[in-house]
């Protein structure tokens, strides 16, 4: 069985959500790509970013609030990860964010030259960075996506924030040239820190949003939000997701992709057999 995202062949529908596993150096030193179909490293920006002051993590009931603030060393250091990304036996999609259209354009031009990167996930929705959340404004979503489209030839997935009227934000991304969507980023929340909430606590909300938009959108969608088990994956796939991202669950089980895939495989096999 294989899965396809705008021409990108995935051996499994499981994708790493950008963030929890960093850029992969530490993770792939300990764990393999088993179970995974696509790796999306943590977001990179044009210039280095030191990130938010600690504390950056707070646990809630069934969830985690994070406020990392896009810490990263900038695109030029990121390019040094090439040997790692080439060595993986799964495709790698870059995740980018920017604070100006010029930065987005420059990132797109640089990544466009990289044959080992299969596409870009445009992170418009990090809830932890002041003044850069384009996701709140439909005309900005169009403008940023269109800026990247002009310089980038491979698939663009736009990652949006969860909104009560999701089509209002999805339409400008598609009009701007997005080939696919990642729905959705973490949910803005506050406990002792202010940040993005992820984990099982948000899943029912995200499934409702997902169900609402799926029939109105004809581009591939990566679903994201509270995926912790094979049945969560199946629920999103049954709702029409083309692939499913796993993020916070890696904190509980660093080998979660492998665990879920094994379970998924036996389920999908049974389903195929029953069909015959």
């Amino acid at each position: 069985m294989s899965w396809n995202l705008c021409g990108i062949e995935l051996r499994t529908p499981l994708v790493t959500a950008s963030g929890p596993l960093g850029w992969g150096e530490e993770f792939f030193e300990i764990f393999s790509t088993r179970g995974l179909g696509l790796f999306i490293p943590k977001t990179v920006t044009y210039n280095p970013k030191i990130g938010n002051p600690p504390p950056r993590i707070e646990e809630t009931i069934g969830g985690v609030i994070n406020s990392i603030g896009l810490e990263n060393e900038g695109i030029y250091k990121w390019l040094k990860l090439e040997p790692l990304y080439r060595s993986l036996d799964i495709p790698v999609m870059a995740s980018i964010a920017g604070s100006t259209l010029d930065e987005i354009s420059k990132l797109g031009e640089i990544i466009n030259k990289l044959d080992y990167i299969v596409g870009i996930e445009l992170n418009l929705s990090c809830p932890n960075v002041k003044g850069e959340n384009w996701s709140n404004n439909p005309s900005s979503i169009f403008e940023v996506t269109y800026t990247l489209r002009k310089v980038y030839n491979k698939p663009i997935f736009v990652k949006l924030a969860p909104k009560d009227t999701p089509m209002l934000y999805i339409k400008p991304a598609i009009d701007g040239g997005a080939d696919g969507l990642t729905l959705f980023n973490t949910f803005p929340a506050y406990k002792t820190i202010s940040g993005g909430l992820s984990g099982p606590a948000i899943r029912p909300i995200y499934m409702r949003l997902f169900r609402e938009v799926k029939d109105k959108v004809d581009v591939p969608i990566m679903a994201s939000g509270g995926v912790f088990s094979a049945s969560d994956v199946l629920e999103y796939l049954n709702l029409g997701a083309n692939a499913v991202q796993i993020g916070t669950a890696f904190f509980k089980d660093p080998d979660i992709a492998e665990r879920i895939y094994e379970e998924l495989e036996s389920f999908l096999e049974v389903k195929n057999r029953d069909r015959k």
């Binding site: 596993l21 960093g22 030191i50 985690v64 904190f251």
Partner: peptide, 23 residues
């Protein structure tokens, strides 16, 4: 001691600030 998320250095969730202002 801090709240640890990934535990292996990837997620940048557990940083502390040094005297020199680095995380």
């Amino acid at each position: 001691e801090t709240t640890i998320a990934c535990g292996f250095g990837a997620c940048r969730g557990c940083v502390i600030e040094t005297r020199g202002g680095e995380y």
